[in-house]
Amino acid sequence: MADASQGPQGGQGFIPQTSASPPPPSPSPSPAIVPAAGPAVAAMAPVSANQLFDQLARIEDKASRIEDKYARSEALLSRVEDKVDAATGRMNDAARQSDLAALRTEVRGLAERTRRLPGTGALVLTAIITAVLTVVLTIAVQRLNLDGLLPPKANAAAIR
């Protein structure tokens, strides 16, 4: 892309020369500034201060546009980061909810199994009925002389 500040394609100065005026004398370069490439330097024309200021203004304009793009990119990335953080939070909440649902199901199953177990009243009633029946059956065996059905007392025989 050719810039207007670079001069015409022909390598002449910024102001075109007319046939009426003689070409301006080129200033002789000082020995300290003379570059090693001779033909390339001869084709370059001296640059005016206005051209340098224009070029500097263009560079500053491009730099400010790059800074604006960087600021927009940074804002976009911060919004993306916020959205990712929010999505991560929602996923953690969902995972916790599924864990709670599984735990709730386990507790419900355990509660169902414990509900089917007999309560304290039923256990006491069973113990009383068992004790009464044991006494009644023992008395019936003794009255009917069914002592022969009972096993012999091995301990009493071993002691005599």
Results as ranks from 00 to 15, higher is better:
L100K: 09
A102Y: 01
D54C: 06
A127T: 14
P151W: 00
A102G: 08
L77F: 04
A127S: 10
T120Q: 13
V34W: 13
G119C: 08
L110C: 03
D99F: 01
R104I: 11
L123V: 14
D99W: 13
Q12T: 03
A71D: 06
I33K: 06
D85Q: 09
P46R: 13
T105W: 15
E60T: 04
S48W: 12
A49Y: 12
A71G: 05
R96W: 08
Q97N: 13
T120E: 14
A87T: 00
V107S: 06
A131D: 02
L110P: 05
I66V: 11
F14T: 01
Q6A: 02
P118E: 13
D82R: 15
L137S: 02
P152H: 13
L56V: 08
F53Q: 02
D68P: 00
Q97E: 15
A101D: 15
R160D: 12
A157N: 00
L110W: 04
L125C: 08
L77H: 01
N155T: 05
S73E: 06
Q97T: 14
D147P: 00
L56D: 00
G10A: 10
G13T: 01
V132T: 07
P35N: 03
R160W: 11
T105Q: 15
P27C: 11
R90E: 04
V135H: 05
A111H: 14
M1S: 03
R65L: 10
Q17G: 08
K62F: 15
K62C: 06
N145S: 10
P31W: 07
E81A: 03
L117H: 12
D93G: 05
E67Y: 11
R108F: 14
S78G: 00
P35C: 00
R115M: 15
E74G: 03
P118W: 12
P23Y: 15
A45R: 10
L76I: 06
L76W: 08
S5K: 08
L149C: 13
Q12K: 01
T88E: 13
T105V: 15
N155V: 10
V132M: 03
D3I: 00
R108H: 15
L149T: 08
P31R: 11
D99C: 01
Q17K: 09
R113L: 15
